[in-house]
Design a protein around this nucleic acid. Structure first.
Lengths: 128, 128
DNA sequence: GTATCATTTGAAGTTAACTCGTAGTCAAGA
DNA sequence: TCTTGACTACGAGTTAACTTCAAATGATAC
């Protein structure tokens, strides 16, 4: 699979794919005889995984650490588990913050709606 | 209220408070006779509001726009409402992404736990 | 066989959101 | 009066995460 195909399939720019590989966020992708990247299904799984984790705000640095641990084999299972538990905690914290903000936005939106209705009512009153 | 007090009260650095004001994210704070900032309760409300919105990931640019609209008065209520509705949509999208990631992390954590248990069991088996 | 086009690498540039550095002001304490 | 410490403005520096650029290479189309 070429970089163009992977880029389109996962909606990640080619530059980003190369960048991820360069910084060790993606395990090194194999090249064909012309030194051009040839992505396997396994590589694609990684891309999809990274996309998912990034969309939840996990920092690249943490993901690099995870990949490194993963490549060291079964000895690092405990460490990987701890890493995920920590990230899980942070996602929950962020979701709580967002929930609070959401409630506040909802309240504001409702108030604004009421204000708009009131304004219209005032306009429709005969004495104006 | 001095900048030190506000900074401590909301856990926002003095630099950030000055920065927010400089870029128009905070309405201009009054100075005393010595040109030193003297925050009112109203100013504090803004700081708290900005902190809340930022914690949910609303971009500074959007918040600047909101403050600008707010300062133009009642004519901008509709625009402010639309701005909030758009941000609301984006927060919900991000929360959904996070929820998906969370489920995936939970699954991984459980698998790792099982793997650790299996490894320990293997160690305890008499034939080893 | 030459033009075109995707791809390669590594370095430099960009953006958002701060954060720091510098030089200067001002009020209070020794 | 001298110094100490908080504060000021504003420009420069930083960090994360990309993105763009430039020069070179290789394959394909005509």
């Amino acid at each position: 699979m070429t970089i163009t195909e992977v880029s389109e399939r996962f909606d990640v720019s080619q530059d980003t794919l190369r960048y991820y590989e360069r910084i060790g966020l993606l395990p090194r992708v194999n090249r064909n005889k012309s030194r051009i990247r040839d992505y396997t299904e396994k590589d694609c799984k990684w891309v999809e995984f990274i996309k998912c984790m990034r969309s939840a705000g996990l920092p690249i640095e943490v993901l690099i650490e995870y990949i490194a641990l993963f490549q060291q084999g079964d000895e690092t299972i405990e460490a990987r588990k701890e890493l995920f538990i920590e990230q899980r905690k942070q996602i929950i914290k962020r979701m709580e913050d967002m929930k609070k903000t959401l409630e506040r936005l909802d309240y504001k939106i409702t108030s604004y709606e009421q204000a708009i209705i009131d304004k219209e009512k005032a306009l429709r009153r005969p004495e104006d």
